[in-house]
């Protein structure tokens, strides 16, 4: 029974992280915005939904939607000044955004309780099997949304901007508006994933904005392949399963955490060097 519970836990995490990765792919893979601050949207969604549910007593479905919306607003506000930056500079500005959010979570103690974190976040359902079904439904909706988006006029224009921004502009596309919308939509789903996470783990603290998770996300994204919704979902499953056997070898938990990070970083480096397009990738990282 313990093993079944463990499998359900793993499946829930995979479901939530696949939402996060598919959303990241829309910004990085489809629109060509090298966003290293995606984890910031995840954390914002987690904090917003947890606080709305705990402090204002909002019903959870509403607080989760609000978590996504707050993250979307943050995404649009981040996109407004930064999307005109190119490649590396955009990457750094977005990475800086994730760090600023971590700093705010640590220091705005009246709201976030700082490093103490927020305990006792209400669960959506007490039974994990039921929660797994909810997560999977939301994950499937997310895949469908992004799959349809990538086939839509809007998605095609985003891909055109990724391939050649000037050409897209000359064809009369408002590239600025497209990039802002793309980052906003991507942030919305990252915020939803964060909100689900906080209502599952029931505790969040500023470490949610950590650098290690950024590498985990990019490993999942690049292993799966840029520009492929299917790739992101499969990349998430692959990366979550690879380090799991370590659990049964019997390493102490103080070693287990670093070991997982070592494995994720090594996988990302090996993929970048030997198979830069991952499993299903359609484009290279610009």
């Amino acid at each position: 029974m313990a093993f079944v519970n463990y499998l359900i836990h793993l499946a829930i995490l995979i479901g939530m992280y696949s939402i996060l990765t598919v959303a990241l792919n829309f910004a990085v893979g489809f629109t060509g915005l090298l966003n290293l601050g995606h984890i910031g949207f995840f954390g914002i969604g987690a904090y917003a939904s947890a606080l709305l549910a705990l402090q204002l007593g909002w019903p959870l479905w509403l607080s989760i939607l609000a978590g996504g919306s707050v993250a979307m607003i943050a995404g649009i506000l981040l996109a407004l000044p930064t999307t005109r930056l190119k490649g590396d500079y955009l990457a750094l500005a977005t990475l800086g955004f994730a760090f600023i959010m971590g700093s705010v979570a640590r220091n705005w103690t009246e709201l976030t309780r700082g490093a103490l974190g927020i305990p006792g976040i209400p669960k959506i359902v007490s039974d994990n099997t039921q929660f797994l079904i909810i997560v999977l439904i939301i994950a499937v909706i997310t895949y469908i949304v992004f799959f349809m988006l990538s086939r839509s006029r809007f998605g095609k224009a985003c891909q055109a901007i990724r391939d050649d921004e000037l050409a897209a502009k000359m064809l009369g596309k408002n590239t600025f508006l497209h990039k802002i919308s793309a980052l906003g939509i991507s942030a919305f789903f990252a915020g939803i994933a964060g909100a689900l996470f906080s209502h599952y783990i029931t505790f969040i603290d500023p470490s949610i904005f950590g650098l290690g998770d950024i590498i985990l996300l990019f490993s999942m994204l690049i292993v799966g392949g840029l520009g492929s919704v299917k790739g992101s979902a499969i990349g998430t499953i692959v990366l979550f399963l690879i380090p799991e056997p370590l659990r049964f070898i019997g390493f102490p938990s103080s070693i287990l955490g670093p070991m997982r990070e070592i494995i994720f970083a090594l996988i990302l480096l090996l993929i970048l060097i030997y198979r830069p397009r991952g499993l299903f990738g359609k484009v290279d990282l610009a």
């Binding site: 590498i215 670093p258 990070e261 070592i262 990302l268 970048l272 610009a286």
Partner: peptide, 25 residues
């Protein structure tokens, strides 16, 4: 293989977390 500077940037962050995790372990 003429990787873009964005790829090198992500590789360098991966290297950083790799060494960090080694230090931690």
């Amino acid at each position: 293989r003429k990787a873009s500077s964005a790829v090198l940037l992500i590789a360098s962050i991966a290297l950083m977390t790799l060494v960090n995790a080694i230090v931690l372990a």
